Computed example of a mutant assay.
Amino acid sequence: MDASTTWPELSIDAYAERTAATKKVWQSMNGQQAGDPAKLAAALLAVADQKQPPARFVAGADAIDAVAAKGRELIAQAEASRTLGGDLAHDDG
C-alpha cells in the first residue's frame, strides 16, 4: 500500500490528528494516480535526448493547462506594469 511513499517515524503532537488525516488521504490515492507512467518515461527520455532540452518540462494535460494559465497571468501582469510606467529603467527621457 505504501509502495510509492516513505512515511516518517517522527510526529509533532500538535499536528498528529491533521497528519493522520492527510496520511489517510494520500494512502487512498496510492496506485490510483492518473496518467501513463510508460508515456511519461518515453517523454522524459525524449527530453533527455535533445541537444537543447527545454528549461522546464511539464507533464500531463492538466499541468500543462495550469502552467499555460500562469504564463498568461504573468504576461498580463508584465504588460500592466509596462502600461503603468514599470519600464522606467529603460526610459531615455
Results as ranks from 00 to 15, higher is better:
41 A>Y: 09
69 A>V: 10
33 Q>W: 08
60 G>K: 00
9 E>A: 10
6 T>Q: 15
77 Q>W: 09
39 K>T: 01
10 L>Q: 04
72 R>V: 13
17 E>A: 14
10 L>I: 04
43 A>I: 02
31 G>N: 07
67 V>L: 10
49 D>I: 03
20 A>G: 14
93 G>I: 12
2 D>L: 11
13 D>P: 12
75 I>S: 13
63 A>Y: 05
81 S>N: 01
79 E>N: 13
20 A>L: 08
17 E>T: 08
19 T>W: 03
72 R>H: 14
72 R>I: 12
88 L>A: 08
49 D>W: 05
27 Q>S: 14
8 P>R: 06
82 R>A: 15
6 T>R: 13
81 S>L: 00
10 L>R: 02
62 D>H: 07
69 A>Y: 14
19 T>C: 05
70 K>G: 12
45 L>F: 01
83 T>V: 11
61 A>Y: 10
9 E>S: 11
12 I>F: 05
22 T>P: 00
73 E>M: 08
3 A>T: 14
74 L>H: 03
48 A>K: 08
81 S>I: 00
93 G>F: 14
89 A>N: 05
83 T>R: 15
17 E>S: 09
28 S>F: 10
10 L>N: 01
60 G>P: 05
47 V>I: 03
14 A>W: 09
79 E>M: 07
75 I>V: 14
91 D>L: 06
38 A>S: 09
25 V>F: 08
83 T>L: 14
16 A>T: 09
75 I>F: 10
80 A>S: 03
26 W>M: 08
45 L>C: 04
12 I>D: 12
16 A>Y: 06
27 Q>A: 12
22 T>D: 00
46 A>G: 01
50 Q>W: 00
50 Q>C: 00
6 T>C: 11
56 R>C: 03
30 N>R: 12
24 K>Y: 12
88 L>C: 07
27 Q>G: 15
82 R>V: 15
84 L>D: 01
59 A>M: 13
46 A>F: 01
49 D>N: 05
76 A>R: 06
42 A>H: 02
34 A>E: 09
68 A>Y: 13
54 P>E: 02
80 A>M: 02
65 D>A: 07
14 A>L: 07
62 D>W: 02
